[in-house]
Simulated assay, not measured.
Amino acid sequence: MTTAAKYAQFAAYEARGASPTYERLALAVSRDDEVLALLDTLPPIKRQPNLLFGVVRFLAGPVEDPAAFHDYTVGNWAAIEAEMGTRATQTNEAGRCAVLLPVLAALPQPLALLEVGASAGLCLYPDRYAYRYGDHVIGSGEPVLECAATGVVPPTRVPDVVWRAGLDLNPLDVADPADVAWLDALIWPEHAYRRARLRAAAAVAAAEPPLLVRGDLVDDLPALAAQAPAHATLVVFHTSVLYQVPIPRREAFAEVVRGLPGHWVSNEAPDVLPYDALPKPPGAALHNVLALDGTPLAWTRTHGQAIIWFA
C-alpha cells in the first residue's frame, strides 16, 4: 500500500467519526506530494499517521489547519524526522482495560499479568480502575472507564492481580514528564476525556510502579514470564501492538506465547493475527478482535469504548 493510500485509509476508517481534525489532516497529507515524498524517505513502519501527527504535536506544531501543518512539517522536517526515527506509537490507553475485563475476570484467580508492548504499563492495573458499562458500575476510584457492552454480561468484580509486569522495546516512565508528554501527544486533539484519563491512570501507576523490562517480545518473553508467581494464573496480553511487528516475528511470538503456562489474551486489528473465520465487523469504523488463547471472542473499539461479543 502506498503512503498516500495509508493516510486516506486512516482518514476513512480510523479518524472518521472519532477525530475530525485527524480525518481532515490525513486526507490532506494523502494528497500532499511534498509531505509524502518526505515520509517515503523513512522506513515503512515509521510512516504511519499516528506517529507523524503525534510527533508534530509533541514538538508543539499545528495540526488543526492542514496548510499550517504542511508548512511546519516541510520547514521543520529535520527535527520531525529525528523524533520519528526514535519514537513509536506507544499509545497507552487505559480505557482498553474495559474490553479486557470480561475475559480477565472470568479466568482462575489470582492473576499474574504480563503485558507485551506495555509502554508505561497503564493497562497493567485493571484491578485499580472503575468501570461503567451502561448503568452497570464496577470498582471505585479514578479513572472511570466507560464502555458500551453488547452481547456480554459485564463482570461483577475486578480481577485479583498479585503480580504485574510489562515488556517493551522502549518502556516509558510515568514519573518522567517527557514520557507523559509523549503519551499526551499521541492522544487525538478532540479527546480531552482521554487526556484526563491518562493523568488519572498515570497517578495510579506512579503510586505502585509496575515491573517494566526493556526487551523483545520473542527473545525476552520466557524469562520474564518465569518470574510470575507459581500460585497465580499467568496472563500474557497485548492490545494494538503486533501491527508494528513484522509478520515472521508475530508468528514466532505466537509460538512462544502458546508454549507458556497460563493464558494468552490478544486485542488486535483483524488482519494482524490469523483466524479461521470472523463475523462481519459491526460497521465501517476500525475494530479490533479480542481473543483468548487464539480463539476470537468479540469485536472491540480501539480505545476500549465498546465491545461487541460474538463468541
Rank of each mutant, 00 (worst) to 15 (best):
1 M>P: 02
11 A>W: 07
13 Y>F: 12
14 E>A: 04
15 A>D: 11
19 S>Q: 08
21 T>D: 04
22 Y>I: 00
22 Y>V: 09
22 Y>K: 02
26 A>K: 05
27 L>C: 00
28 A>W: 07
28 A>I: 05
35 V>Q: 03
37 A>L: 09
37 A>H: 06
38 L>K: 12
42 L>D: 11
42 L>Y: 02
48 Q>S: 09
55 V>P: 00
56 V>A: 11
57 R>F: 06
59 L>R: 04
60 A>P: 10
60 A>I: 00
61 G>M: 02
62 P>V: 06
63 V>R: 07
64 E>Q: 08
67 A>G: 02
67 A>K: 01
68 A>K: 01
74 V>H: 00
75 G>T: 00
75 G>M: 03
76 N>G: 11
76 N>S: 13
77 W>T: 07
82 A>M: 09
84 M>F: 07
86 T>P: 06
88 A>D: 14
92 N>L: 09
93 E>L: 14
93 E>N: 09
97 C>R: 10
103 V>M: 12
105 A>K: 05
109 Q>E: 06
109 Q>G: 03
114 L>K: 06
114 L>T: 02
115 E>R: 11
117 G>F: 13
118 A>I: 14
120 A>V: 00
121 G>P: 14
122 L>F: 03
122 L>K: 08
127 D>F: 01
127 D>Y: 02
129 Y>E: 05
129 Y>C: 08
130 A>V: 05
132 R>E: 14
139 G>M: 08
140 S>I: 06
142 E>C: 01
144 V>M: 13
146 E>R: 11
148 A>G: 11
151 G>S: 08
155 P>Y: 12
156 T>A: 01
156 T>Q: 09
157 R>M: 03
158 V>F: 08
159 P>W: 01
159 P>E: 05
161 V>T: 00
162 V>G: 06
165 A>M: 04
168 D>L: 00
170 N>A: 10
170 N>K: 05
174 V>R: 11
176 D>R: 03
177 P>W: 03
178 A>M: 05
183 L>W: 14
184 D>W: 10
185 A>C: 08
186 L>Q: 04
188 W>V: 04
189 P>N: 04
189 P>C: 12
192 A>E: 12
194 R>S: 07
197 R>H: 00
200 A>W: 02
203 A>T: 15
208 E>H: 12
209 P>C: 10
214 R>D: 07
216 D>T: 10
217 L>C: 13
217 L>T: 11
218 V>T: 01
218 V>R: 01
221 L>P: 14
228 A>L: 15
228 A>P: 11
230 A>Y: 02
230 A>M: 00
231 H>T: 10
233 T>P: 05
234 L>K: 07
236 V>D: 10
241 V>H: 13
243 Y>M: 06
243 Y>V: 10
244 Q>E: 12
251 E>M: 00
253 F>H: 11
254 A>Q: 14
254 A>H: 12
254 A>R: 15
254 A>E: 13
256 V>G: 10
257 V>I: 03
258 R>G: 15
262 G>S: 13
263 H>F: 08
264 W>C: 03
266 S>Y: 08
267 N>K: 01
268 E>A: 05
269 A>S: 13
273 L>W: 07
273 L>Y: 12
274 P>I: 08
275 Y>M: 04
277 A>V: 14
277 A>E: 14
282 P>W: 03
287 H>R: 09
289 V>Y: 06
290 L>Y: 09
290 L>K: 09
291 A>G: 09
295 T>N: 00
295 T>H: 07
296 P>R: 04
298 A>S: 08
301 R>G: 07
302 T>G: 14
305 Q>R: 05
311 A>L: 04
